[in-house]
Design a protein around this nucleic acid. Structure first.
Length: 885
RNA sequence: GGGCGUUUAGCUCAGCGGUAGAGCGCCUGCCUUACAAGCAGGAUGUCGUAGGUUCGAUCCCUGCAACGCCCACCA
């Protein structure tokens, strides 16, 4: 046998295994495979940079699931890919060019987009490498990029279809505009940040110069675009003024005083300035009152000619100068502090300026309706389900989606404007002439589509839509979508809408939502805070398996994860533990040929017990994974592997394997290998690398663990286990623990072999012990163990009473010559105290007849057993104490 | 302003109607022939707060408090 290193070294083998898996195409799924289909599509990472911990978590969960399903015999496919991430990527490349002093306008559209492609190749390549390091078992042959030819075709088809169905339209209206990105953005891309601002009160004189109204505003510079002031129709203070005009300060425009219900008479002065071209409220009100719309900013947020002498200024100067002018003119009444939510660009953090412009919109209500029904009816389920409400709330109040962006990186809108007749031609193929007047004097829109437009099609576009492919036929709809809560609206909701509209079928049945990975203090990881943890670095230090297992163990039920290296350290140790268990399993069995037992009777109690534990584990892990309770599955495996297999079974197998009975050795060797093999398979979806490494070392292995069947209850090997063996082993465990407790508390060195005896009048107990004597002496490190029914001499002896159900047993360890008795006295006194506390609790309960009358009989029974157990225990302990000396 | 979530051992979190659990950390003793990335033993909690339902509440209900997140056009 080749020597296995003492510690597991993931770095040495992980990369090789991945290469081997990939070259053998284990992750490639064929439409012709006879298994039941199972499919996942990856949330495509942005090509903006490298993967972070969120990706590591997200991908690990998907990989666990798809490996599990694949091993179960499903025709499982996990489709990988990347997102061009329009605005985000364009900004990254713009920033890079800026460092060289280059602006994108200098390069021109074509050259600039070329630069982005270059960058995409580099960054995308890095992401692919990272995904492989993590162990993603994606079907690489199906890898897609949102700007691929095929996906672009899908995008165009969707756009044209929706346009023809009148679900896409062009509108001239107010949009969220980012002056720094110089593009429109959707409602979702505006983050409202609570900010301490001011409320300025400004005097607007009436036209006749006789009176005035005071308006309150948080954005005084926009007054330059005011076209009215408004009051509440029920406000008696201003009733007489409605219909009259005021003179707009600085500009001297005469603007009407209108009455509208939107005005809250109790806020500020009860008079609101109306800036229809730069405020959503005012825009709406303006439409109702047919107010003039005056844009005062250009696309970069610079004041234009409509701002009179303020032209050329930009905020915050613009505001400052306007306020100065207002003060000089005596128009400024006061300034008071005011908290408000300022809209900021999700991408660049610039203040969003509502602006009038021509944009393309998706009419969303008709698409939203079936998407709401799909979730309400349970056709699509959220896990955890409280996200259902979040989704539905948003969908009920959804507004038309602005899909055009004034960017260069993305899918260009397939619309051609005719300069002769102004008609817009929307076409699947590039148009050469106007469809209406046939003029060739046409120009394609410069705008591109919101990046989420293409990702909305992801579940079917990646499978080749609009072609009728076998992939679609086989794998659409997908089964489970695993993603973060932050993109439920951006992505999940839109996929549901598009899937239902174009495929007439939901894109997935289950949406598993996980939280954010935060740092150990619970803070969001961000480059600016410098607390970003690079998953690749962790993989270098701890191995991919340890990282994966840590993430799965922390993911819990949909809440955020506080990530700390301590945890990772612990699970790295777990990986090492399995590794060393394997070293033992191989080393201790050297020279022994494992022989399959003919029946359970040929096996030791320990053998039968661990097989039973294995069966239990298969059941619970399978149920947990089927319910997407990843953490529960992982914890169960951790517990059984370490707590039962290593701590108990391996120790119990030692007396056999190091003993003389070669038949027994052969049987135990068989069980040891069989159980380990199955444990490793159970673990494989979580920790693919180490399990492959171990699998390859174990006898009778196949080509790769990736090709193995996931353990099931339908396995004749499991028949060798039994529940009674688990109950019997608990007697052994209790006796061993009882002796160890005496050893530990009395500080008897583990090297010291001691004598002990167990006393019981219960024949069954003694039988179990006598049949398993070598196990107890080995685990408790005894020189001898006597079994008696009589307590006998207990002078200078430590005694530990043990109760298992109705059975009583005492463990007696002579301390003579080992230690002085003070520690033992302390130990017993402590035990008595504890038992008395517990007993009084039980007695109090039983003394209340409301309890005895009302509680279910089995609970009362339990309490009674407890009472008698504790009474006996105290009696025995007290006896022990008095007889000690 | 609406909605959601959290509050359990020093830390991170399980548990969700019958005497409080795990990992890490801590204390004690051990390099016991798989593993010191280990072994054995031990300590640690008015389960956020005030009420209510119940024979019984960490768990269910109602207030309250603190923290966090999402959505929203109050100038």
């Amino acid at each position: 046998m080749a020597e296995l290193s003492k510690g597991y070294e993931p770095g040495k083998t992980e990369g090789q295994w991945y290469q081997s898996w990939e070259s053998k195409k284990y992750f490639h799924a064929s439409e012709d495979h006879k298994g039941q289909p199972f499919s996942l599509v990856i949330p495509p990472p942005n090509v903006t940079g490298s993967l972070h911990m969120g990706h590591a978590l997200n991908n690990t969960l998907q990989d666990v699931l798809v490996r599990y399903k694949r091993m179960q015999g499903y025709n499982a496919v996990w489709i990988p890919g990347m997102d061009h991430a329009g605005i985000a990527t364009q900004m990254v490349v713009e920033r890079m060019l800026a460092k060289e002093g280059i602006k994108r306008e200098q390069l021109g559209r074509e050259k600039f987009v070329e630069k982005i492609w270059e960058w995409k190749a580099e960054s995308g390549g890095m992401i692919l490498g990272q995904q492989r390091r993590l162990g993603n078992s994606t079907d690489w042959e199906r890898h897609r990029f949102t700007l691929d030819e095929g996906l672009s075709k899908a995008v165009r088809k969707v756009f044209v279809d929706l346009y023809q169905q009148k679900l896409i339209y062009q509108g001239h209206r107010l949009v969220n505009w980012c002056p720094r990105c110089v593009t429109a953005v959707s409602d979702l891309e505006v983050k409202h940040v609570e900010t301490k601002g001011s409320l300025w009160h400004i005097r607007y004189p009436t036209e006749d110069g006789q009176g005035e109204v005071i308006v309150a505003t948080t954005r005084p510079e926009t007054m330059l675009g005011d076209t009215a002031v408004a009051v509440n129709p029920k406000d008696v203070r201003y009733k007489a003024l409605v219909g009259k005009k005021v003179t707009l300060p600085l500009i001297n425009r005469k603007i009407p005083i209108i009455a509208d219900d939107v005005v809250d008479k109790d806020f500020g002065s009860g008079v609101v300035k109306m800036t229809p071209a730069h405020d959503f409220n005012d825009y709406e009100t303006g439409l109702r009152h047919k107010l003039e719309q005056i844009s005062i900013f250009d696309s970069h947020g610079v004041l234009n000619q409509n701002a009179g002498s303020f032209k050329g200024l930009k905020n915050p100067e613009a505001r400052k100068k306007v306020l100065e002018a207002l003060t000089d003119g005596g128009f400024l009444v006061k300034e008071e502090p005011h908290a408000m939510a300022v809209g900021k660009c999700d991408r660049c953090d610039a203040v969003i300026e509502p602006m009038l412009s021509d944009q393309w919109y998706v009419k969303i209500a008709p698409l939203a309706k079936p998407a709401i029904e799909a979730v309400e009816s349970g056709k699509i389920k959220f896990v955890p389900e409280n996200w259902t409400k979040t989704y539905l709330e948003w969908m009920y109040n959804i507004r038309d989606w602005c899909i055009s962006r004034q960017l260069w990186w993305g899918h260009r809108i397939p619309a051609w404007h005719c300069k002769d007749c102004q008609h817009v031609t929307v076409s699947l193929v590039d148009a050469t002439q106007c469809e209406k007047c046939k003029s060739s004097n046409i120009k394609q829109s410069d705008d591109v589509l919101d990046t989420w437009f293409s990702s909305a099609l992801w579940p079917f576009s990646t499978m080749g839509w609009p072609e009728k492919t076998k992939a679609l036929e086989t794998w659409y709809p997908t089964n489970t979508l695993i993603t973060g809560f932050d993109i439920i609206f951006f992505w999940v909701a839109r996929m549901i809408m598009m899937g239902l509209h174009f495929m007439k079928e939901v894109p997935f049945h289950t949406v598993y939502i996980h939280g954010l990975v935060r740092d150990e203090r619970g803070q969001k990881m961000s480059k600016s805070k410098g607390n970003v943890v690079d998953p690749l670095g962790l993989i270098e230090d701890f191995g991919a398996d340890a990282l994966r297992f840590t993430l799965v163990s922390l993911v819990g039920a949909g809440r955020d994860i506080k990530f700390s290296e301590d945890r990772l350290d612990g699970y790295r140790n777990f990986i090492n533990k399995i590794w060393n268990a394997t070293r033992f399993a191989l080393g201790a069995v050297e020279g022994v040929t494992p022989v399959e037992p003919a029946s359970a009777a040929e096996l030791s109690l320990a053998d039968r017990f661990i097989i039973y534990e294995l069966e239990r584990t298969i059941k619970s892990v399978t149920v947990a994974l089927d319910e997407l309770r990843f953490t529960d599955a992982a914890m169960e495996l951790y517990q059984v592997t370490w707590g039962e297999f290593c701590d108990w079974y391996l120790e119990l197998s030692k007396p056999v394997l190091y003993g003389q009975d070669s038949r027994a050795k052969e049987r135990t060797a068989f069980v040891l290998h069989s159980v380990l093999m199955r444990l490793v398979k159970l673990l494989h979806p979580f920790t693919p690398f180490v399990t492959e490494e171990i699998y390859q070392k174990l006898p009778k292995h196949g080509e790769s663990i990736c090709l193995e069947k996931y353990p099931t209850l339908d396995d004749s090997f499991l028949k060798l286990g039994s529940k009674t063996s688990a109950q019997e082993i608990s007697v052994i465990k209790a006796v061993v623990t009882g002796i160890r407790n005496i050893r530990g508390e009395n500080r008897i060195s583990p090297a010291e072999k001691i004598k002990a005896r167990t006393v019981s009048t219960d024949k069954k107990m003694l039988e179990i012990l006598s049949a398993n004597l070598p196990f107890v002496t080995s685990l408790a490190r005894l020189s001898e163990l006597n079994l008696t029914s009589d307590l006998g001499e207990t002078k200078k002896c430590a005694i530990n009473p043990i109760a298992i159900g109705d059975s009583r047993l005492q463990v007696v360890v002579p301390l003579e010559g080992l230690v002085d008795l003070d520690e033992e006295i302390k130990r017993i006194q402590k035990e008595i105290e504890k038992a008395q506390k517990d007993l009084s609790l039980a007695e109090r309960k039983l003394s209340q007849d409301t309890f005895v009358k009302n509680a279910p009989p089995e609970i009362v029974e339990l309490e009674k057993t407890r009472q008698s157990q504790l009474t006996d225990r105290i009696k025995q302990l007290e006896q022990a104490l008095t007889r000690l000396k």
